[in-house]
Design a protein around this nucleic acid. Structure first.
Lengths: 340, 340
DNA sequence: ATTTAGCACTCCATGTGTTTGAGTGCTAAC
DNA sequence: GTTAGCACTCAAACACATGGAGTGCTAAAT
């Protein structure tokens, strides 16, 4: 691709991101003066279109970047990807070490990203499948209610309030606690399932057997801790983009379900991935772009943070934001883990 | 209002709820045969319109119920408000005593209501302002991290993970715990604020003073527990109603913010309130109807459960659903409280 | 005194040109 | 290789006719 073509493609992409209107040869020159006539631009645009970088809504309309065009722009043409100073400050003031645990940190991160970008923000906790149970706590809350707390080797803390089948006396509680603590601490999360818990209960006799619903609670807790938590912020921002309006409901429902969000991208630590329009494997996202990055905790793969918006999105501005936020979250979580 | 007018108004409301199209005199007769000619219907409709029960989108269109018309229908004309058997089963299978604490029970309730009605569902926990701190627990999670757990006299359980300013040794933790426990148990939630906590810390010396961020954590926790939690489910359902499409973004943002949702209605225990269209005090809801009820816990005012949909909503079906669900949640929470 | 048939009227929705303008592709001259 | 020029295209905007569902009114029927 000639330098001139590159320059023209970049100008079209940038202009289209700004205006959302198809770009014609003449109006392109107004925006980005070049020592060329509109006829030359026209010829170049026709070639770019036949190469697949531009689309044409209809014969006599201007050109619009295709997803291939955006892709080329992002990979090769996009200018400096410096983070805007104002954005950096915003991010830093929202996301700090004081945020407590990973979940609340990520929820702050999602909020600020959605706010800053006018897109939907997705954030996930790190996958906990390989984690090992470090500690279990049981805090009595009432005659039949306890709060179970689980701490994993990866620093994930989960708690759950459970109601027992019968009253929990002090001695019953203590023996139950001792049994599950002894049996489970040091075991990987994915090892724990209801069947095993029941045989465990059976092996120690009737005391623990009276606590079946607590065992179920522990199992659920372990399951929850192994699960990736997906948080979504600012979905409603997407309603402001007319190009997404037609499938607004489908898109919203897709995002709400959240399950597949972890699977949108396929990333290694510290990686950033950008999926533009039809590059997405989910049909609901074919008019959207996804910018997502994975943070690392202590050199290990962590969760992901990213955003979802229309394809016509300011890549040059938003990519560094996602990158910066992801790195920051990774650093904070690494520090928090080291301290424990 | 004559019996005939009542019958006609009811028929119009019901038909309009079904079709969403303005109803004409002739098409009304097709739907609901009466021993009358269309001309008579026309006269009656004209009168109903001049009385304010019907609106007319334009001169030559059919009639649409005004909010006053819906109101009259709901108050006087609506047939039996029996709960559909299928719905009852759905509700019961989703909301049961096993759901653990109040928050997860309410989240189940909201989900099932949103699903069943294709509307947005709102649920709030009971207001905890008058509650008293029953117990505080502090579970160490790491060298600098603890989990604080608060239990109130009204059965609300809240927990929070806090990072201390410095390492928490066993003795430091214990003395901190003893101090706050002694100082706060039995005190009403609204009594607790940061200034008081700091003077408390100052009065007991440097040990507790080293734990300022934990004190802040306790304060926040008390604040959280006093706060009404607002949950929202199924917002995206509202995108399916064309009459809400125009202000979809404003409506979504209004709901997302959640703060005013507790103030939409003004209810006593066991009461149900229905606000139709412009009866709502918030402009964002002027095209919507709200059906909301308050549950009671142990004869005391609890939180609210309800739904938000377009004004064209099947009142006869949905009102009993909300009522039943609210009663059920109240019963379960009352039972849970009694057992503790 | 109601009820109803009949009729003129209204107005949206739909469809059909017509015009306008931004844009294209091509060709021939530079 | 570049550009001026020109014929052509097509969506969007506008005007205009048409049809139909609906109304309100009046006068006759019950």
């Amino acid at each position: 691709m000639s330098d001139r073509k590159k320059k023209i493609l970049a100008a079209i992409v940038e202009q289209y991101i700004k205006t959302g209107e198809p770009i014609g040869s003449k109006s392109l020159l107004e925006y980005q003066p070049m020592p060329l006539s509109s006829a030359t631009i026209r010829n170049e645009m026709a070639e770019l279109a036949s190469m697949g970088y531009l689309d044409q809504p209809h014969t006599s309309a201007g050109r619009v970047p295709s997803h291939k065009g955006y892709r080329y722009y992002v990979d090769n043409l996009m200018g400096s990807t410096e983070l805007d100073e104002k954005m950096r400050k915003h991010i830093e003031s929202a996301v700090s070490e004081k945020s407590g645990d990973a979940e609340s940190l990520l929820s702050r991160a999602g909020e600020v990203l959605a706010d800053l970008t006018n897109c939907a923000a997705v954030s996930t906790t790190s996958v906990g499948e390989s984690a090992v149970i470090k500690r279990i706590e049981m805090v009595p809350m009432g005659t039949r209610t306890v709060m179970l707390v689980l701490l994993t080797s990866t620093g994930i803390i989960k708690s759950k309030i459970c109601r027992a089948d019968s009253e929990i006396t002090a001695s019953l509680g203590e023996s139950f606690y001792n049994i599950i603590s002894a049996a489970l601490v040091g075991r990987p999360l994915c090892d724990i399932n209801l069947a095993k818990m029941q045989t465990l209960a059976a092996s120690v006799g009737s005391d623990a057997f009276a606590m079946l619903s607590l065992l179920a609670g522990v199992t659920e807790l372990a399951h929850d801790a192994a699960q990736v938590d997906v948080r979504l912020d600012g979905q409603s921002n997407l309603l402001n983009y007319s190009e997404l309006e037609q499938n607004a409901y489908e898109l919203m429902e897709f995002l709400r379900k959240g399950e597949p969000l972890g699977n949108i991208v396929n990333l290694n630590k510290n990686d950033i991935d950008i999926l533009i329009g039809k590059e997405n494997r989910y049909k609901q996202l074919e008019r959207s772009s996804v910018i997502m990055a994975r943070y690392s905790i202590n050199e290990q793969d962590g969760g992901t943070i990213g955003l979802i918006g229309p394809t016509r999105i300011d890549y040059a501005k938003l990519i560094p934001s996602v990158k910066y936020l992801t790195d920051l979250v990774g650093r904070i979580l690494t520090k928090a883990l080291e301290e424990n």
